[in-house]
Amino acid sequence: FVHSHKENEEIYGILSGNGKAIIDGKEISLSTGDWLKIAPAAKRQFFASDISGITYICIQVKENSLEHFTAEDAVIG
């Protein structure tokens, strides 16, 4: 089904198989190991391959909530 979000972006990791995503009308091929980050307002729809199917994980977070993503944010010890 086609959907979007109000505030949350989504990060998809393709764990196995193949398929495609249609994001704002643009078709993107997906295969094992691919990662995809999608802005909240983008209209998206996913399809599994008829041959292999697809298994993915979806992580949903508030858009731009990760402000410090570099090594300087790490606390060691």
Rank of each mutant, 00 (worst) to 15 (best):
A74N: 14
T70A: 08
G53N: 09
S65T: 10
V2M: 05
V61H: 03
S65N: 11
V75A: 13
S16N: 13
D73C: 06
S49T: 12
K6G: 04
G25R: 04
I54K: 00
L30G: 13
E7M: 07
A71S: 08
I23A: 10
T32Y: 00
H3K: 11
E10K: 01
V2A: 10
I28F: 06
I14V: 14
L36C: 06
C58V: 07
T55K: 06
T32N: 04
K62S: 03
V75L: 14
C58D: 12
A71N: 07
D24N: 15
K62L: 03
G17L: 00
G17K: 00
L66M: 07
C58Q: 12
I22P: 00
H5R: 02
I54W: 00
I57M: 11
L30T: 09
T70H: 13
H5L: 02
S4Q: 05
L66P: 01
Q60M: 02
H68M: 12
K37C: 11
Q45V: 14
E27L: 06
G19N: 05
F47H: 08
Y56C: 08
S4P: 01
I38S: 01
G25P: 14
F47Q: 09
Q45W: 03
V75W: 09
E63K: 02
K37I: 06
I54D: 01
H5A: 08
W35Q: 11
K26A: 08
A41I: 15
I11S: 04
S49Q: 13
H3D: 15
I76N: 13
G13Q: 15
T32M: 04
S4K: 02
A71G: 07
F46W: 01
G17H: 00
K37Q: 09
